[in-house]
C-alpha cells in the first residue's frame, strides 16, 4: 500500500518540533529577546503562500478578491521579514564582551 504524502509532511513536522525543542533549550537566556524577534521573522516565510495567492489565476485580472488577500498578506509578511531580521541584527550588534 502506498503511503499518503501527508504522513511524510507530518513526520517532518514532528521531527522539527523535536529539533526546535533541543535547539531552543540551548539558546542562552540573555538572547531570549532576539530569539523572539528572529522566530517572528522566520515565521513570515508564510509569504510563500502569500505570493502564490497573489499570482494565482489569469494574468488579465490580477485583482480578484483572492489575489487582493494575497497582496495584503505580502505587505504584512514583508514588514515582518525586514523588520524582524533588521531589529534582531540591531540587537545582536549590541551584545559585546568586556574589553580586555
Amino acid at each position: 500500500m502506498e503511503i499518503d504524502p501527508f504522513i511524510f509532511r507530518l513526520s517532518i513536522f514532528i521531527l522539527s518540533i523535536f529539533v526546535g525543542y533541543y535547539v531552543v533549550w540551548s539558546v542562552t537566556p540573555s538572547l531570549h529577546t532576539p530569539l523572539m524577534s528572529v522566530t517572528n521573522a522566520i515565521s513570515s516565510v508564510i509569504i510563500v503562500g502569500a505570493i502564490i495567492a497573489a499570482l494565482a489565476g489569469a494574468s488579465d485580472n490580477i485583482f480578484e478578491t483572492s489575489n487582493i488577500f494575497g497582496f495584503l498578506a505580502i505587505i504584512l509578511a514583508a514588514v515582518n521579514i525586514f523588520g524582524g531580521f533588521l531589529v534582531t541584527q540591531r540587537m545582536l550588534q549590541m551584545y559585546k564582551k568586556k574589553k580586555k
Partner: peptide, 26 residues
C-alpha cells in the same frame, strides 16, 4: 505550520514547528 500543511510546503512546516516549540519553551 497549519498553512504549511495546506500548501504542502516543507519550509513553512519546519519553521512553524520551530517557532511553535520555541514559544512554548519560553
Amino acid at each position: 505550520a497549519g498553512i504549511g500543511f495546506t500548501l504542502e510546503n516543507t519550509a513553512l512546516i519546519i519553521t512553524g514547528a520551530l517557532v511553535g516549540s520555541s514559544g512554548a519553551i519560553l
